[in-house]
Design a protein around this nucleic acid. Structure first.
Length: 405
RNA sequence: GGGGGGAUGCCCGAGUGGCCAAAGGGGCCUGGCUGUAAACCAGGUGCGAAAGCUGCGGGGGUUCGAAUCCCUCUCCCCCCA
């Protein structure tokens, strides 16, 4: 058992580090310190199983709750997923089949439990209650809320003003999500800041159904690898949680320097004062941002893969990007003993068409055993293994194949 | 029920008969620089060995020639009721 003091420190950290809104702060603090394990809700959208570091922020927060002995309740939004998502704009999302939802949920959870402790988590499918929901139930739920209130949500308000479409299901979405809290009797719900409205609707609806309203905690949206927009699959600026260690490491190394502070605070457990020191050091030039990034990358890869994997990834990065040497391991491709360079590039999977391969050669991006290839039409005699390199970071070991084709 | 707007390359978005393989931006790729896959700078970015072919929602047509004009279909959006 940890001391009261240690416990208080953890609670303080949970409430302040990497959080945006905490409603109601004092009440949550008390309950966190209390004896009863809280039911901490996280709603999951099983339409997209692409989990990235943005989600990781949330997962880490849940882990903090668990460390204090609280219970995580994951809700698989299998019903709302099939109705459609409220983030609107992009054309109507195709309805998913039950099997697709099932499969997506599966992959989601696999990644989720890399971070969150399974033994203190409960997985609940939304269809448990919505599966038997009647029209009467829907109407009762809908009657508890008003259009005016829903329109206070910023994106709804904006779209309404602009005359952009808002479907009824979109308006229903926050209510359904709120009802989940009723169904599982949530004590706390967490989500990204963009979820604040929905989380608060949960409070109102719970009250309507005669329950104690849940407390709400939001975490910031992580900035993507472009350094500007929030991390998201659709912006293509994300680092996936299940990225192979080397890729993950490299992508973290490629984030712009100015987002390092956010990343350190939201994705690692480094103490605040240490982070401040690092940032100050970078600001006055005494610390190379690259070294900080490397430390960040090691920490994240260690947590999501393993310390060994992180160490290997670090070595790989050094070798390939700093020393410009060949990696220890690379894919092996067998090729006919006499082949044009462009074809080698295509066969190795580094170009999708001959034209693309030709361009790569023309731009000086193709090397054979370190020798830069000048002529795309060059025919290469391959009698023993030779290393093909494209750009700075793509390598393949070419072996002559016995059977010409 | 009535009226109007729109569909362009991975994405956003310009383009209203030839100079359009299609401006511009983003993304991505390559090179340079850098003890970073950062920042910055430069270039590239449909397919084909080539001739050339395919391409601007689908189909059909007009024309020497169409992303651009006409017909038709599909889909999306807005306004009024």
């Amino acid at each position: 058992m940890m001391s009261t003091k240690a416990r208080e420190a953890l609670v303080e950290r949970l409430l302040s580090r990497g959080t945006v809104d905490v409603v109601v702060r004092e009440r949550l603090r008390e309950r966190l310190l209390g004896d009863r394990p809280l039911r901490v809700k996280l709603g999951v959208d099983p339409t997209r199983p692409d989990i990235h570091l943005g989600h990781y922020v949330c997962f880490r927060k849940l882990r903090e709750f668990q460390a204090l002995g609280h219970q995580v309740v994951v809700i698989i939004g299998d019903w709302t997923a099939r109705i459609g998502d409220p983030s609107g704009r992009s054309a109507q999302r195709p309805m998913l089949t039950a099997e697709e939802v099932q499969a997506n949920a599966q992959t989601y959870l696999e990644q989720f439990f890399k971070v969150v402790d399974v033994s203190r988590a409960e997985i609940v499918w939304q269809s448990t209650w919505f599966g038997t929901f009647t029209l009467e139930d829907v109407i009762r739920l809908a009657s508890k809320y008003t259009v005016a209130k829903l329109l206070t949500r910023e994106d709804f308000a904006k779209r309404y003003e602009q005359g952009s479409p808002i479907s009824i299901t979109e308006l229903l979405y926050p209510l359904l999500q709120a009802y989940d809290s009723v169904a599982i009797q949530a004590d706390v719900e967490i989500g990204g800041t963009d979820q604040l409205f929905n989380l608060l609707v949960g409070r109102d609806i719970m009250r309507e159904y005669g329950l104690e309203p849940q407390d709400v905690l939001t975490v910031p949206l992580l900035v993507g690898t472009d350094g500007t927009l929030k991390m998201s699959k659709s912006y293509g600026n994300y680092i996936a949680v299940n990225e192979p260690p080397t890729e993950m490491f490299g992508k973290i190394m490629s984030i712009p320097d100015h987002v390092l502070g956010d990343y350190l605070r939201l994705l690692t457990d480094l103490p605040d004062d240490e982070i401040d020191a690092l940032l100050a050091g970078m600001a006055n030039g005494s610390i190379n941002p690259r070294d900080v990034k490397e430390r960040l990358a090691v920490l994240i890869v260690s947590d999501l893969h393993s310390p060994e994997a992180a160490e290997n990834a670090r070595e790989y990065f050094h070798r390939v990007h700093r020393l410009r040497e060949l990696p220890e391991e690379m894919p092996v491709v067998s090729v006919p003993p006499r082949t044009r360079v462009i074809e080698l590039v295509v066969r190795a999977g580094f170009a999708r068409s001959n034209n693309e391969a030709r361009r790569l050669v023309a731009q000086g991006g193709v090397r054979l055993d370190g020798r830069r290839v000048e002529d795309p039409e060059e025919v290469v005699e391959i009698t023993e293994p030779i290393v093909l390199q494209v750009g700075k970071r793509r390598f393949a070991r070419l072996l002559p194949s016995p059977v010409p084709d």
